[in-house]
Design a protein around this nucleic acid. Structure first.
Length: 783
DNA sequence: AACTGTGGCTTGTGTC
DNA sequence: GACACAAGCCACAGTT
C-alpha cells in the first residue's frame, strides 16, 4: 500500500544513482522528530546544444526528432539562455542515462554541425541542486509517498519517493545530529606502518551521546577491530563521522586491511564501504564523512596542522602531555605498560576529534549551505571549487549557460600596491581600510566578462592604467553575484549585532558571516584563476588596477585631510590618529570615491622596519601584535622566535634599545653553557614536492632524504623538522632530522649567528644597530 | 583563487 | 682555492 504525505527534513547529503535503468537523485535527510530518511526522485540528466548563429534551433530540433540518430535521447525542447551577454536559443536534450553524457553531447554537436554543448560535464546531483535551488544543510518540505522496503529501509528510518520538488523551509536551528569521532593506530618496527604488512592495533571512537570505546588487537590479526568498527557505526548510526587525517590515512588503511582480511566494511547507510570521491575525499553513503585535517587547513593562524596544535589553538583541549612521537610508537607498543599508555592516548584522541568536530560543525554547515557543496565535500574542496560551486548555482538562477572548466595557461597580471613604510617607532597610529575592496570595485564599476567591451565613452567605465572598458548597464554576472553576497553579509552582520553572544543562534550567524566573507573574497581570485569557468584576465587585472587607483587617490585625500601616511597595503592606510581628521578623511572617501572605508584599529605604538609587510604593534591594552616578522613564521627555530618576541616587546615598551640589547647579550652567553631543550633548535619547513624532485640541495630537503632512508616515507605537503649539527661540510650536509640527534650535537654558533642575531637586528636596526654591533656593544657595556 | 614582498640558501661565474 | 656577487630556488607571510 502506498500512502502520501508531506515530509519536512534537513538535507544532509545528495547522491545520484540508477535504479532499474532509471536515473535518480537521492536526498538524505533528518526530520524534525529526528527520523533519518532517504527520498528518491527520478531525475533525468540533460545538457544543452548551442546552435551556430546561422542555424535555426527549431530546425535542428526537428532534425533530431525525425532522424533519431541516437537512441539515448528521450526528450528535446527549445530554451532561451544567456551566454555571457548574448541571448541565445538552445536545444535542451534529456538523456535516458547519466553515463557518458559528454560523449553523447559531442556526437550531437558533430551530427548537427552545432557550435558547442553545455553542462554535460556536471554531476546529476549538482544539476538537480541548480535546477531547484536546493542547498545542503537547509530545511525543505516535499510531498512524498512510501516506497516498498529495500535494503536501505533497515538502515534508514524511512525510504520515500518524491511526489514534487523540495520547497525551502526557513529554520535557523539544526536538527539533533548524531556524530562520532574516531582514530586508529598501527605500528611498525622500521619506518611507518604499511597496510600490506601491519595490522591495526588500536581503533578508538566516541559518539555524541557520550558512548565510546577502544578496540585493541593484541594478536596477529585485526579482523575483530574491522568487524567491531562496522558494527559500532551501524549501531551508533552517525550523521557525521569525524576523523583527523581520515581521507589521507585512516580510510585507505582500513580499506586495505578489510581487503586483506576479507572483512566487509559496512560503514554507509547503504551498508557499503567508504568510496573514493572528489578532491581526494572518501564518501560514505548517507553520512557526512568529515576529515578535520581539512578544517585545520582553513585555520589560517595554525601553521602546524596537527590535532594537538589545532585543539590548542581553539582552546578545546591540550593534548601535549599525552603525545607519543610517531617514531616511538613501536617501542611503546612492545612494552606492556607503555602499551596501555599508547592505547589511552588513542582513546583521548578520539574524544578530542569528536569535540573538535562538534566545534567545527557550525562552520561546515554554513559553508556547505552557501557554497552548495555537501558538508562532507566542502572542507576537502579548495577555495576555487567552493566559489565554482557557488557561482554555478547563482549563474543558473540568472539564466546563464554554465561553461566547462578550462585549463588554459594562467597569464599573470599586476596586483596591489604596498607602500614603503617609514622605519622607526610611531605613537598613536590609526589603521583605516576599505571594506571588501575588490568585490566592491567589481560591483561599482561593473567589472565582469559579460560587460567587457571595446566601446569607449559615457556608457562605459574605463579602467586606468590597463585601459579596459566595461558597460555600465546591465549589471554583469560578477557584479550581481558579488552584490548579493555583500548585501547578504551586511544583513547577517546586522543580525549578529541584534543577537546575544554565547547563544547557538549567535554562533550560527557568526559561522554564516565567516562563510560569506570567504566566498566573497575568493570570488575575485576565482576570476583570475586559469581553472575558472568564468576566467577573465581582464576582469582580475581591472579589479586590481581599480584597487591601485583607489588607494593612490586615498593617499591624496588622507594628506588633504591633514593626515600623515606611514604605511599601506592594498586597501589599508596607516595614519597618525587624530580623530577629527580621520573622520573627515572617511567622509571624503565616501564623497569623492563613493566607497566605504572604516577605522579598524588604533595602536598605541608601532614599529616599522625598512621592509614591507613586516611590523610590530603595541596595542592599547599592552598586548603585542606581530605582522610578517620571523617570530610568527613557521620556518624559524623557536629560539629565534622567542628572541625576536622579547626584543620587540622591550623596544616597543621602552622606546630605547637598552633592555633588548642586554637581553640578547645575556642570552648569547648562556647559549653555550646552559642546556635548552632540543625543540628550541628545530626548524620546520614544508615540502612542496617529493624530496627527489628538488633541483637544489636545501637543508630541509636533505633532512627529508635522511628520513626516507630511515623507512619513513615523506611526501609533498609534509613538514620536515631538522636541526643544524656540528660537522664538516655544507650547511645542507649538517641538517639532521631532529629525532635522530641530541642536544649535544647542536651547532650553537650557527644558531647564534644565523638565527638569533639576524632576528634581533631586524628589530634593532631602527636604532642603527646591526648584527655585528649587537655583540660589539657587549664589549663596550661590560668594559 | 590571485598577486606582492622578504629573505635564507645554493649555485654559477668572475676575480685575485 | 678563497672570496664576492648575482641569479635563481624555495618557503613563507600578507593583502583581497
Amino acid at each position: 500500500m502506498v500512502s502520501e504525505m508531506n515530509r519536512e527534513f534537513w538535507l544532509l547529503d545528495l547522491n545520484s544513482d540508477e535504479k532499474e535503468g532509471k536515473p535518480q537523485v537521492w536526498l538524505w535527510g533528518i526530520t524534525p522528530e529526528g527520523k533519518r530518511i532517504v527520498i528518491t526522485e527520478n531525475y533525468r540528466p540533460y545538457f544543452y546544444i548551442l546552435p551556430k548563429a546561422s542555424q535555426n534551433p527549431a530546425n535542428l530540433k526537428a532534425r533530431l526528432e525525425k532522424e533519431r540518430p541516437l537512441p539515448s535521447i528521450v526528450e528535446l525542447s527549445i530554451e532561451n539562455k544567456k551566454l555571457l551577454s548574448q541571448e541565445r536559443t538552445v536545444i535542451r536534450v534529456v538523456a535516458s542515462s547519466s553515463e557518458n553524457l559528454a560523449k553523447l553531447a559531442t556526437k550531437i554537436v558533430k551530427f548537427l554541425g552545432a557550435e558547442a554543448f553545455f553542462e554535460a560535464d556536471l554531476r546529476p546531483a549538482t544539476k538537480y541542486q541548480n535546477d531547484f535551488q536546493v542547498h545542503p544543510c537547509q530545511w525543505y518540505g516535499m510531498e512524498v509517498e512510501t516506497e516498498p522496503a529495500t535494503v536501505q529501509a533497515r538502515i534508514v528510518g524511512e525510504t520515500l519517493q518524491a511526489r514534487n520538488r523540495p520547497a525551502h523551509v526557513l529554520h535557523e536551528r539544526l536538527p539533533d545530529l548524531r556524530a562520532i569521532g574516531f582514530t586508529m593506530l598501527a605500528v611498525s618496527q622500521v619506518g611507518s606502518p604499511s597496510p600490506e604488512r601491519d595490522p591495526i592495533r588500536v581503533l578508538a571512537w566516541n559518539g555524541s551521546d557520550g558512548r565510546g570505546g577502544t578496540l585493541r588487537s593484541d594478536e596477529r590479526s585485526d579482523e575483530n577491530i574491522l568487524r567491531k568498527f562496522s558494527e559500532v557505526v551501524q549501531a551508533e548510526d552517525p550523521d557525521f563521522i569525524f576523523s583527523f587525517g581520515g581521507n589521507s590515512a585512516h580510510w585507505p588503511y582500513l580499506l586495505k586491511r578489510a581487503e586483506k582480511t576479507r572483512v566487509s566494511l559496512t560503514i554507509g547507510r547503504d551498508a557499503g564501504p567508504p568510496r573514493q570521491s572528489l578532491f581526494g575525499h572518501f564518501s560514505v553513503t548517507g553520512r557526512a564523512n568529515v576529515d578535520l585535517l581539512d578544517f585545520a587547513g582553513d585555520l589560517y593562524d595554525v601553521k602546524e596542522k596537527t590535532l594537538g596544535a589545532v585543539t590548542r589553538y581553539l582552546g578545546v583541549r591540550d593534548l601535549r602531555e599525552t603525545v607519543v612521537e610517531e617514531t616511538d610508537n613501536y617501542d611503546y607498543w612492545s612494552d606492556p605498560h607503555k602499551r596501555d599508555v599508547l592505547t589511552k592516548m588513542v582513546g583521548q584522541e578520539a574524544e578530542t576529534i569528536l569535540t573538535l568536530g562538534t566545534d567545527a560543525l557550525d562552520y561546515v554547515v554554513q559553508l556547505s549551505a552557501l557554497s552548495n557543496l555537501p558538508p562532507d565535500h566542502v572542507l576537502a574542496g579548495a577555495a576555487g571549487f567552493r566559489v565554482d560551486s557557488h557561482m554555478m548555482m547563482e549563474a543558473h538562477r540568472l539564466g546563464q549557460l554554465i561553461p566547462p572548466r578550462n585549463e588554459v595557461p594562467a597569464i599573470p597580471y599586476r596586483g596591489a600596491i604596498v607602500l614603503q613604510p617609514e622605519p622607526g617607532l610611531h605613537d598613536n597610529v590609526a589603521v583605516v581600510d576599505f571594506s571588501s575592496m575588490y568585490p566592491s570595485l567589481m560591483v561599482k564599476y561593473n567589472i565582469s566578462p559579460d560587460t567587457l567591451t571595446e566601446e569607449k565613452g559615457d556608457e562605459v567605465y574605463t579602467v586606468p592604467e590597463v585601459g579596459t572598458s566595461f558597460r555600465k548597464t546591465p549589471p554583469g554576472l560578477y557584479a550581481q553575484i558579488l552584490s548579493d553576497l555583500i548585501q547578504n553579509r551586511k544583513m547577517i552582520k546586522a543580525e549578529i549585532a541584534r543577537s546575544t553572544k554565547g547563544t547557538s543562534r549567535y554562533r550560527i550567524l557568526k559561522a554564516r558571516e565567516k562563510a560569506a566573507k570567504i566566498i566573497t573574497n575568493a570570488t575575485y581570485g576565482y576570476a583570475g584563476w586559469a581553472g575558472s569557468r568564468w576566467y577573465s584576465k581582464q576582469v582580475a587585472e581591472s579589479a586590481a588596477a581599480m584597487g591601485r587607483d583607489t588607494i593612490n587617490k586615498s593617499i591624496g585625500l588622507a594628506r588633504q585631510s591633514g593626515l600623515k601616511v606611514f604605511y599601506g597595503d592594498t586597501d589599508s592606510l596607516f595614519v597618525n590618529y587624530d580623530k577629527d581628521r580621520v573622520d573627515r578623511f572617511i567622509a571624503a572617501i565616501d564623497q569623492e570615491l563613493g566607497l566605504e572605508i572604516n577605522l579598524s584599529q588604533v595602536y598605541k605604538r608601532i614599529l616599522f622596519t625598512e621592509a614591507r609587510k613586516k611590523y610590530a604593534v603595541l596595542k592599547e591594552n599592552g598586548e603585542l601584535d606581530l605582522v610578517g616578522m620571523e617570530a610568527i613564521r613557521g620556518d624559524w627555530s623557536s629560539l629565534a622566535k622567542e628572541v625576536q618576541n622579547k626584543v620587540l616587546q622591550f623596544v616597543l615598551e621602552d622606546k630605547t634599545p637598552d633592555r633588548a640589547l642586554s637581553y640578547v647579550r645575556q642570552l648569547s652567553h648562556e647559549l653555550a653553557s646552559q642546556k635548552r631543550p632540543l625543540s628550541s633548535f628545530v626548524i620546520w619547513k614544508t615540502l612542496t614536492k617529493r624530496p627527489e624532485q628538488y633541483d637544489v640541495h636545501a637543508p630541509h630537503v636533505e633532512a627529508a632524504k635522511k628520513i626516507v632512508k630511515l623507512g619513513w616515507p615523506v611526501s609533498s605537503g609534509d613538514r620536515v623538522g631538522y636541526v643544524i649539527v656540528m660537522a664538516r661540510g655544507k650547511l645542507y650536509e649538517r641538517a639532521e632530522p631532529y629525532f635522530k640527534t641530541s642536544i649535544d650535537n647542536i651547532d650553537i654558533a650557527y644558531y647564534l649567528q644565523n638565527q638569533v642575531l639576524p632576528v634581533a637586528a631586524r628589530a634593532l636596526s631602527i636604532f642603527g644597530i646591526t648584527e655585528e654591533n649587537i655583540l660589539e656593544a657587549k664589549g663596550r657595556v661590560e668594559g
